[in-house]
């Protein structure tokens, strides 16, 4: 670790990264949050020179947005660049270059696969009668094991690699991990449909008509729901509720 970066400033920056979206807005997105997370290190590096501190603070206030769990990668790399005395323009260009890939990768890896896969596994556990508190604890522990591992890995990699984080990302093969997670999530989805149909409290036991309606709603979601999911779900529920008030569905 180079002299400007002490263990305490690095830990402080990492902990502050958990608040990076606190002031999220449509103008600078997480710009203020990024500067807030950089502050302890910037004060340590430029504390004796108010003008340098002011300039460094301003360059990290600019518009910035990445996936929050991978924000540590950008933060660690920016800390490394600042500690190495990299010129301001290079730091700014580096941040602009990584924000798109880190945003897209994080969304695909976490929001579109890791989170729904574990949500569906937890829901399936509930349907088969696992005690409620155990289902919730299982979900939280497993989800956050992956979440925190990604944050720690990202921050350490950024701090170690600096401008070379792109190569580190390629070596980590996150795209391949995303594909495997998509496959796992698909199995979880099938599992959830299976237990929601066949468990003792499932739709088949409520009545075969309910099971058929459930499968129909599933197909409707698959075919057209991605365009208008909320209105579709509301329309399905409303139609069945109206049918039930007429006694057609009981």
């Amino acid at each position: 670790m180079s002299p400007p970066l002490t263990r305490s400033t690095v830990i402080s920056a990492f902990l502050r990264s958990f608040l990076i979206q606190g002031s999220w807005n449509y103008r600078t997105m997480m710009g203020n949050g990024f500067a807030f997370a950089m502050l302890p290190a910037l004060k340590r590096m430029f504390g004796d020179d108010p003008e340098a501190l002011d300039a460094s603070l301003r360059r990290h206030l600019n518009h910035f947005n990445v996936h929050p769990y991978l924000s540590g990668l950008a933060l660690g790399a920016a800390l490394r660049l600042e500690a190495d005395g990299t010129d301001a323009e290079t730091v700014t260009r580096f941040k602009m270059a990584i924000r798109g890939p880190l945003g897209g990768l994080g969304d695909a890896l976490v929001w579109a696969t890791w989170l729904p896969a574990l949500s569906m596994l937890a829901l399936a556990l509930w349907w088969v009668g696992t005690p409620g508190w155990m289902t919730v604890v299982f979900f939280l522990v497993l989800y956050n094991a992956g979440h925190l591992a990604l944050r720690v890995w990202g921050f350490r990699t950024g701090l170690r690699e600096g401008r070379a984080v792109a190569q580190a990302l390629t070596r980590a093969n996150l795209v391949n991990i995303h594909e495997r997670l998509q496959e796992a999530a698909t199995v979880m989805l099938g599992l959830l449909v299976g237990v929601a149909l066949a468990s003792p409290t499932g739709l088949v036991h409520t009545g075969l008509l309910w099971a058929a309606l459930g499968m129909l709603a599933f197909v409707v979601g698959l075919k057209i729901g991605h365009r208008i999911w909320r209105p579709t779900a509301i329309a399905v529920v409303t139609a069945i509720a109206i049918l039930s008030t007429w006694g057609i569905v009981t």
């Binding site: 989805l189 929601a196 739709l203 036991h205 409520t206 459930g214 709603a217 979601g221 075919k223 509720a241």
Partner: peptide, 20 residues
């Protein structure tokens, strides 16, 4: 039981979207 069934049917739309 059918009340829960009704809610699950609505949720099935989301599950279908996720498969997409």
């Amino acid at each position: 039981a059918p009340s829960l069934g009704l809610l699950v049917v609505g949720g099935a739309v989301s599950v279908g979207i996720l498969l997409h």
